[in-house]
């Protein structure tokens, strides 16, 4: 009897062991499957892309940063369109609008590809199963950095130009007197200068922002964390785009200034109007001074930015990227030589 009890006890323990193992396995499979939207009620939608940038089956789909599904299939439909099948949780589908866009992104700096569904406008109806959404071009870290570089170069150039012009305005009395001959010109100039001052102020603010960012970028320990953090990434993106618009504005301004100066050279009778308005003359004077200071700042900031970018180049993580750039340049040079 005793022996029988022993084997029964063993059998029970064995059963517990096996059940524990199997339930762990099933739990694991369930959790993984859950992540891949394999269980639960799902719906299928499609997204079209020109370039899927190495997206793979099983990659996650996010809506507003929330995992809502996975990539189920990828197929080419013609020479420039790739259709991606997405399985989306049914309850998430109730919030996605028909004009939502799909955008490719990476999970962190070197993470897996993900599809971000960007919310559409509210007045449009909700997406149904089997519907197709269109895509944005993916903004990659690389894109961001290269835009940053170009913008920076532009800013430097712009600053140099502006400096030249203001110096000319400041020193060339002849020019000023020409300028002051034309009254409409003077009005124009007043407006331009206000505009310029505004822009310069915002640029200087921007540049200081940029500076902060670049400094934190340079902090080696932080670089991945920072870029992983989508908030910072967004910030960086917006800064870059702002900088771009500012650059555009400046360009416009310089064109304006140029035109003004040329017109001033041609000389009309603005001098009368202007000499009567003492405050305006004063205004122009202070404006030009502050403009000069701002431009000086801008110049310095650009140099700093350049330095920072240089430092970034040496940062271990980005080294590969910059090397690639250099190599490409070299290749192009070689091609040209040939």
């Amino acid at each position: 009897m005793k022996a029988l009890d022993k084997t029964t006890a063993q059998k029970i323990k064995l059963a517990i062991f096996v059940i524990a193992g199997l339930s762990l396995f099933i739990l694991g499979v369930y959790l993984i499957g859950n992540q891949q939207s394999m269980f639960g009620s799902n719906a299928r939608i499609f997204a079209t892309f020109n370039n899927i940038n190495g997206l793979k089956i099983g990659n996650n789909v996010r809506y507003g940063g929330l995992n809502v599904g996975t990539v189920k299939g990828i197929r080419m439909v013609n020479d420039s369109t790739i259709v991606v099948d997405l399985t989306i949780k049914k309850d998430a589908l109730g919030y996605i609008r028909k004009n939502a866009k799909a955008a490719l992104g990476t999970d962190g700096l070197v993470g897996n590809m993900i599809i971000n569904i960007v919310p559409g406008s509210e007045e449009i109806g909700l997406l149904n199963a089997e519907d197709t959404i269109h895509s944005y071009r993916r903004i990659t870290t690389e894109d961001m950095l290269s835009t940053l570089n170009v913008t920076n170069e532009n800013a430097a150039m712009l600053t140099a130009d502006l400096l030249k012009i203001t110096r000319a305005i400041n020193s060339g009395e002849g020019t000023i007197s020409y300028l002051l001959k034309d009254s409409t010109m003077a009005l124009n100039l007043e407006q331009s200068i206000r505009y310029f001052r505004q822009t310069a102020a915002s640029t200087s603010k921007m540049i200081s922002h940029m500076d902060d960012l670049i400094v934190s970028l340079n902090n080696k320990n932080n670089v991945i964390g920072l870029l992983r953090d989508s908030v910072t990434a967004n910030q960086l993106k917006s800064v870059v785009s702002n900088l771009e618009t500012t650059g555009n504005d400046m360009n416009k301004l310089v064109a304006n200034l140029n035109a003004t100066v040329t017109r001033a050279k041609e000389g009309d009778g603005a001098i009368n109007y202007l000499s009567n308005d003492k405050s305006l003359v004063k205004k122009i004077d202070t404006s030009v001074n502050s403009l000069d200071a701002t431009l000086h700042n801008l110049n310095e900031a650009s140099i700093k930015l350049n330095e920072n970018l240089e430092a970034l180049k040496h940062n271990i993580l980005f080294r590969g990227y910059f090397k690639k750039l250099e190599k490409e340049k070299e290749k192009q040079l070689e091609k040209e030589i040939k």
């Binding site: 694991g28 499979v29 959790l31 993984i32 992540q35 099983g58 996650n60 995992n67």
Partner: peptide
Amino acid sequence: VFSSLEFGDV
């Protein structure tokens, strides 16, 4: 852990 795992691993 589970979000990084796939059936291809298990």
